[in-house]
Design a protein around this nucleic acid. Structure first.
Lengths: 97, 97
DNA sequence: ATCCTACATACGCCATTGACGTATATTAAA
DNA sequence: TTTAATATACGTCAATGGCGTATGTAGGAT
């Protein structure tokens, strides 16, 4: 990872910091709404079983999310959102076990 | 997302399926060992507070992981592993709120 | 040397989740 | 219409995540 690029990322994390602290307006929502999860899964065209495996949860857990019975935890939301934003790269990084 | 590339990804997910079912040998470990988490965080050069924010957990939760008091849940492991494998793209996808 | 701030270790407590199970419904293909 | 794959729906419970507090450490600044 080149240093210049890394510096940019670091800057973004700093900005994220300020957003959380309320010193800056967030550009958009940071997390997936549980209700949008199904749409995201459809977007990458995976069945519940495969998507669940991809993101490392039990099938039943994914179902709980899609049916609104449970709320995904933080990392799950971040991961799903990341998949939504850049499916190619993120899914690749998830898969290559 | 181009269809050809997507087809490749889908194939990979199918393979992942077979791995989980024991029909195929996994290339490597699928998940992060909790003990490796700190090394991964150092690799991307982020403090505990910033890394916790990045992956969407409370600082105390990340600390529990690094100190071996708790085990990250599935999506957290996948996300961390993805960050390890492709920090640039995955962190970018996580950040862009 | 002392203060100060950021960063990290360590752990108690409890509401919420994830995992596991079962039963039913829908869809598509054979 | 039978079959298999996919999805809805929900009960139960151990384990986690979030929250708090206390302590330790490394680095500058004064």
């Amino acid at each position: 990872m080149k240093d210049s690029l890394f510096a940019e990322l670091l800057e973004s994390v700093e900005q994220m910091d300020e957003i959380v602290k309320g010193e800056r307006e967030p550009a958009k929502e940071r997390f997936v709404a549980a209700s949008r999860l199904k749409l995201i899964r459809k977007k990458v065209n995976l069945s519940q079983p495969k998507f669940a495996m991809l993101i490392g949860v039990e099938l039943s857990t994914l179902r709980n999310w899609e049916q609104g019975r449970r709320e995904p935890t933080g990392p799950a939301k971040v991961l799903i959102k990341a998949i939504e934003r850049d499916p190619e790269n993120v899914i690749k990084a998830c898969i290559s076990s």
